[in-house]
Every structure is written in structure tokens, then in C-alpha cells.
Amino acid sequence: MKGFLGVDVGSVSTNFVVIDHNNEVLVDLYIRTKGQPIRAVQEGLKQIASEIGNSIDICGVGTTGSARHLTSILVGGDSVKNEITAHAVAASAVIPGVQTVLEIGGQDSKIILLRQGVVTDFAMNTVCAAGTGSFLDQQASRLNIPIEDFGGLALQSKAPVRIAGRCSVFAESDMIHKQQLGHNLEDIIAGLCEALVRNYLNNVGKGKEIVSPVVFQGGVAANVGIKQAFERALGVEVVVPGYFSVMGAIGSAILAREQVRKKDKTNFKGFEASEFKYKAGSFECKGCSNLCEIIEIYHDEQVIARWGDRCGKWENIS
């Protein structure tokens, strides 16, 4: 059976999916990046390989996420696409006719508007990561509750407390004040969900026309508290797709399939790539006043890729 692999390497999680010709997800995997994208990618490849065995023949690979270029070198990617396009592609494949995509990941949040299946506008948080997954993670661990239970607790609240959501530092101190005043945990958590949604809509969603169907995806979509807060704020139903946490990977697998159809062969290095000895190094180029930080990726002792230079002096290896 033919399959297409999509890999989305983000700041917090590294996601893999294998899909078939009909966008059916055959395998999906969500692991933590833990600041080590190379290891996460190799670990993921290993797990995918052991799950599918010889039953699926990988005919195309797509990568996305902030480490998409690195990942493409490691696994042999056919398409390398930014996560905004990948998420839009996946959303319109999974929910035909979708007009608004809300996506909140580990370090970034975005909104994508589609009309007739085409992206017409998007925005991504720029200078502030308030209200993204990392912050929720941090608060869950501060309050000593598993992140999985966070949303459920919010739903139990009857009177959400008002929390300042503009900045995660403000939000945290506001939460601590309210907690010390004696508000109960459910109300504080529900208040935080509302604050984050308010911040998202004011910041990322500013001036955007949010029309149904609205899809909510990315790791934070697991949080039912946030989903409910979105529905309350927008007054429309918000759909969380089944594979909400790996939508970027699904999009990149679809893009890989399109790419391979055009050129009819894949660059995939095979699952052996999970055993290769990859190593990353860096140095500062002193060629001019830019002092670029050059990253080098080694396979065994050989440099297979370099980037980070502004002038292109190091990018071309040969």
C-alpha cells in the first residue's frame, strides 16, 4: 500500500502522520521535541517504522514547522512548506468548505481565513507568545495539575474569574493574586481560558472576519476549556477535528503527495535515516560585520547542509 509521510517539527511537539491517497490517516504520532529536533525526528521515524512494518510503502515526504528545513535534510523531503499553508491545506481537506482556521501551537498562534478553498488572509502572533501552549503547560505545572485535565476543570467553573490576558507575565501575576484571594481553581482556570481567547482575538484575530465553519486545531485544541471560551466569544460552533494535534503534518503529507505526482519519485532516505549519525554544529563567520551564525549538519563526519549565512558563502557546500 502506498503512503505519504508528513512531519511537522514545532517548538514543543514533533508530529508524524502517514496518509493514503484519500487523506485517510493510517498512522499518527505526537511526541515532544524537548529542544532536540534531530533526536525527535529520528525517534519518530523509528516508532513509525515499527508501527507500519512492511505494510506501507512511503512514496513521498513533506516537512513543515519551524524545523522544516532541517527535517527535510534529515529524512529526505519532497516538499518543504511553511506551517500556515500546511495547516490551511489540512483544514480544507478534513473539513471541506472551512472558512476560518484557529490554530494554537506551542510557541505560536495563527488565524487563517479561507474563501472557496483558497487562503485569503492570515495572521500569526509576532512579538508575543502569550496564550500559546507553552504558557498553558507552564501554568498547569505551577498549579500541579496534568495539562490533560486543564480544560475539563475549566468546564466545571460557574463563575470564571477575570484574568489579564494581554501578556503572560501579567496573566501569571493576576492569577496568583486571585488565587491568594481565595478564588477556587476551576474559576481561575476558566478565567485564564477566557483571557487567552480574548487576547488571541484582539491580537492575532484583530480585524479579521471570522465566519463559520470555524475549525480549531493545534495542540491547544485538546483543551475543551479554550474551545468553549472560543464558542462563547464568537457565538458560533467551533469544530475540533479528530486529528487536531497533527493537522500540520497532515497538510505537509498532502503537499508531498502533490509534489511527488509532478516529479514521480521521492527523496525519502528510508527509515534507516533513524539510525544515521547526525550531528549539528555551529560557528560564527567572521567574513564581515554581519557575524552570521552558521549551522552545520553532519552525517557521520561529512557536512550535508549548512545555513544561517546572509551572503550564501557557506550555503553551497560543494
Binding site: S66, K81, N82, T85, V119, T120, M124, T126, V127
Partner: peptide, 28 residues
Amino acid sequence: FLDEQTGKAGLQTRLEAFVDLLGQKRDV
């Protein structure tokens, strides 16, 4: 919005997505 960041990756992502958007719009 530009500030002290010197990392280009975030800008690259947004520009790529913007260029995709413009290309698709023109095709339509």
C-alpha cells in the same frame, strides 16, 4: 512588526505563506 529579533525564521515563514496566498489568489 520589527524589534530586536535578528532571527529570520519567523519572518521567512510568514513571507512564504504570504507569497503562497498571493500566488493562489492570482491563479483564482
